[in-house]
Design a protein around this nucleic acid. Structure first.
Lengths: 360, 360
DNA sequence: TTGTACGCGTTATCAA
DNA sequence: TTGATAACGCGTACAA
């Protein structure tokens, strides 16, 4: 029985958002024990039909919802996946993130974001929570891997960690979901060859990153198979828009221009195109361009950019599924390559074609 | 004393990632009580110098890190902010999100993302955690507000909820951090007028959204003040790229073209420009274009897009600070408008100017 | 079918 | 300066 006369406490307490209902509250009002409420709300237990209804009613009336921290503490399981992303404001990652979020949700998980590009120390701390129960698993999307993770991996522990997007394995033991980067680059460059471009330069990514080497290898192999000459130097390096701009300037400083450029990603291709166009060069008439990623803006540029479409949806799906299986302790076979696709747009138009460019 | 001979349990247990150290473990090894460990690790308590050192050493050796769920449960405080975002893959939001994340971190908070555009029911459930201790506060970035929040707000409760980016208040009681949308639109259109454009059309946003009405008002007012005719119809509606494309087609179906279009946001301006250019129209010679948002790609288009820069960094900073103050129960004055800025680029180039377009 | 008792890891209060 | 104790809200083994 509540003591009806003890109003002093109510009067003295601050206007704090009053405590939200717990299963104990429901139990009291429904005239059952807390454990019965817990079981009933969990669903799949043997509970009296009438009891179940009464509990459900009270819970609804009270606006009950479970305290996730209490549950996580008790269950030693949080239902949270940590996704490590270098840069949310990069469309390649944010698009992937959206897919991951939606698929994780289908599997009953929420995601937290670890911003590796901004503050690695902070991300390392977030990753530690894998061992304190704060998070259940980690999804890597770049070659960054928190030190605590790689240490334990090296010690032979099996951890719920999966990598996608990036083909780089910070540790061999981390399973990855990826495309065949080299084959994709090969396809893109071979397409340029087929369109009669002959001096095909490469805007390489970052030298230290495996994905750059793979895409470069694809480019090189395509040239070799076509019997074309391989330039001794790239026209530039880097994945950022400004790297593309810089590459364009260095390109235009030469005596002989390439007639096509295969860029390691779309972003740098944007910068390259913008700078070339700002200096009066026409794409693809003067120089053709191809990229890698297929960001949503690539179809909007004038001319729209030919590029390799990264199957982000499929990668998200496969990697989340794999990670969840790992968490559940189910052994699953290591996944195959996800199929990629070359999207041909006007930036690589056949140089001998007539363009529907009006005017001029 | 640990029973040295009780190895049976170690043998029988599965290769589970063994339990991570707790303060109890540290206490045992350091020869003190758990409470002392807790206080010492928390920092600002009166702890013996030697004791403190010993505890710190043991904690480091064990690789201890705090269990966030246990702490949150005990503290009734999670250190997590829920940010409601319609679409992470929209640069306007993802850029804002990055700023928010970084500033929230400075203030000691982590953020969780609520994807209102994808699954509103799910977001409503996430918002419920404000009352169960799962999250400490909510940051709104669109006009979407979870039902449980608006209900309690309507009931007069004071909640740690702040809105930014969107000028729409789902509820008057929610404080907002915003720019003067109407003035910004006015500035953009006035700039077009100054550049001698006379038939300035408007690609409106979504009719139901306040931000659309504000930007439209700014457009209208600028025309009125310049003594120009106000078209009886918009050339289209919507914020998406495809809405811009559609608007371009409807525009080109007319007998008299406008000579400039003020778009409610950059994304729709991208679509408009792409479609106009695909049909041989030149920007700005045939039609000038201005947008709103200043996404990072707007400087890359050819021609680069004139637009209103949304001060996302400043908005993130002010709104997070305000939210944290609200959580801490500090009364702060409602913030003023954040200053905006018009970024003038070539898409609104003076029509009488000679362009450095080569060729032709 | 339901209730009792306990523990998940932490911090706050109180007493020493 | 330190330790014992309780409590945050939940789920579950065990007993009834």
């Amino acid at each position: 029985m509540a003591r009806q006369h003890d109003t002093s406490r109510n009067l003295s307490q601050k206007p704090q958002p009053r405590r939200s209902p717990t299963i104990a509250d429901i139990a009291r009002l429904a005239g059952v024990s807390p454990s019965t409420v817990s079981r009933s709300l969990a669903g799949n237990e043997r509970i009296g039909k009438e009891t179940r209804r009464r509990i459900a009613d009270v819970a609804r009336d009270l606006g009950y919802s479970v305290n996730r921290h209490a549950r996580s503490l008790r269950m030693q399981r949080s239902g949270i996946l940590l996704v490590l992303i270098p840069d949310i404001a990069n469309l390649n990652y944010s698009d992937l993130l959206m897919q991951i979020d939606s698929i994780a949700h289908e599997r009953g998980y929420d995601i937290r974001i670890g911003h590796t590009g901004v503050d690695a120390g902070r991300v390392d701390r977030q990753a530690e929570e894998l061992f304190t129960g704060g998070i259940d698993g980690i999804l890597l999307t770049s070659d960054y891997c928190p030190s605590s993770i790689s240490q334990r991996l090296a010690a032979g522990e099996v951890l719920p960690v999966v990598r996608t997007l990036s083909p780089t394995a910070p540790d061999e033991r981390i399973v990855g979901v990826q495309i065949d980067e080299e084959a994709a680059a090969f396809d893109a460059v071979s397409h340029l060859v087929k369109r009669d471009y002959r001096r095909i330069a490469h805007l390489a990514g970052s030298p230290g990153v495996l994905v750059s080497r793979l895409r470069m290898n694809g480019w090189r192999r395509a040239l070799v198979e076509a019997g074309l000459q391989i330039p001794d130097k790239f026209i530039g390096e880097g994945f950022a828009v400004d790297d593309g701009r810089r590459a364009a300037r260095s390109l235009m400083a030469r005596t002989v221009y390439p007639d096509a450029v295969f860029c390691a990603n779309d972003l740098s291709a944007y910068g390259l195109m913008a700078e070339l166009q700002a200096n009066g060069l026409k794409i693809p008439q003067d120089i053709a361009v191809a990229g890698f990623d297929d960001l949503s803006f690539s179809s909007l540029f004038s001319p729209p950019l030919t590029t390799v479409r990264l199957p982000r949806r499929e990668m998200a799906e496969a990697s989340v599924r794999y990670l969840v299986d790992l968490i559940d302790g189910k052994a699953t076979p290591s996944p195959d390559y996800i199929p990629h696709q070359l999207i041909i747009r006007k930036s690589s138009g056949d140089r001998k074609m007539e363009y529907e460019k009006p005017g001029c």
